[in-house]
């Protein structure tokens, strides 16, 4: 019992990312309104970013900026364990900016659908296509 508890508590960020991925996926598939589907997509995206950032974390480390890094000649003794892993941060930083660009494209398509069909509910659009 105690073992299971420590197992759950030790990685709670992973659990949160997992729950958010499930929420986002449910929203993307089950919701009838297209804007809600877009919101579900952005929740899914943040959940994956949360997972990557959780992996980059190191305990007892500092932010990824080298202290007194500028203007000092010799940098022989930089301990990698003192700084969190910067590589996932870089990948996720660009993912966020590309995410807002794709969000813009999705919303533009959505407005165009509304202009043509007069609604953004999925079932009503399907009916108006059939007619």
């Amino acid at each position: 019992m105690d073992n299971v508890l420590t197992y759950i508590v030790s990685g709670y960020n992973y659990w949160a990312a997992l729950i958010l991925i499930m929420i986002g996926m449910y929203g993307m598939i089950a919701k009838n309104n297209l804007l809600k589907k877009v919101i579900g997509m952005s929740i899914f995206q943040s959940a994956i970013i949360l997972f990557y950032i959780s992996i980059s974390y190191k305990s007892n480390a500092s932010i990824p900026i080298i202290a007194h890094g500028h203007g000092v000649a010799d940098h022989t003794a930089i301990d990698p364990n003192l700084y969190v892993n910067p590589l996932p941060h870089v990948l996720m930083l660009t993912a966020i900016v590309v995410g807002v660009a794709t969000l813009g494209v999705a919303l533009a398509v959505l407005q165009k659908i509304y202009r043509v069909h007069g609604t953004i509910e999925e079932d009503e659009i399907l009916e108006s296509i059939k007619e």
Binding site: I49, L50, I53, S56, P64, I65, H89
Partner: peptide, 12 residues
């Protein structure tokens, strides 16, 4: 993310 020390990502 700020609390996980990913300052640049949190800023973005």
């Amino acid at each position: 993310w700020t609390e996980m020390l990913a300052v640049d990502v949190a800023f973005t």
